[in-house]
Amino acid sequence: MSGAVAQTGVPVQSHVQGRRSSLTRSRIRAAWLFIAPSLIILALIAGWPLARTIWFSFTDADLNSLSDYEFIGFENYLANYDGEWLGLLTDPDWWHSVWNTVWFTLVSVSIETVLGIIVALILNAAFPGRGIMRAIILIPWAIPTVVSARMWNWMLHDQFGVINDMLLRLGLIAAPITWTANPDTALWTVVMVDVWKTTPFMALLILAALQMLPSDIYEAAKVDGVHPVRVFFRVTLPLIKPALLVAIIFRALDALRVFDLIYVLTSNAKDTASMSVYARQQLVDFQEVGLGSAASTLIFLIIALLTVMTLAAGRVRLGEDPR
């Protein structure tokens, strides 16, 4: 009797196993079926242009005759003609735009982070009209960048702008300032407009993190008599750090690609050109598709590298869940 059970037991078990693995196989097939459309669309709208741009960066293509080009290897990046180095990597304008972009990213994201934290802390406190304030603060973020940049352009206009007018009336300046044209003020002006526009985004992300915090630990700190400033640095900041890092990464990646704001505020001025502005200029104004593609490819590489680095650094820290 027991022998029969043992005998039938074996095939039954393997039968179960076989069914389980075929179930897994059909699940995997279904999964592929479901993600295939998005993979195809991604390949079409992101992969193909990217591949084409990288390909063009190795050619001497011209915007006038896009079909008529030759493969020239790395000459768009770096080439040696008769002992003279040429190419993108030797162009001081390119390096200036890289520096502008990095500087803009560091300064604007830092200011936005600090202001975002302050605004979020204020919005997190209970006060009458808090709901309305939360909605109002989002308005700068909701306006399209081109529109808000145009708006600021007018407000910053050296002759008709309201900002110069106010500063003059207050006696803070003696003569109107050409905010966006003056190399000394132009990049700071860009930073200021960007801060105005994206601080709400930072504040909202941080506010969401603040609202996830348990309230009881703040009462415990209150009973223990810990000073609020200390509570902020020792309790709040460490607890919102993961969310804060994500917000900073988001903003930094955005800032590294900055184009519309700078293009509208200062046009093609070399002093304020970002990497994207430089690439557009090569591509469209100078019709140098090859060189512009090389610049675009480098932008892609720089951002990809920074993303991978921040994600790797972030994963180490994010993995260390503070709760």
Binding site: P214, D216, I217, E219, A220, L239, P322, R323
Partner: peptide
């Protein structure tokens, strides 16, 4: 506190 209220980090 009922919820312990320990600092999680």
């Amino acid at each position: 506190f009922q919820s312990y209220a320990l600092y999680p980090h």
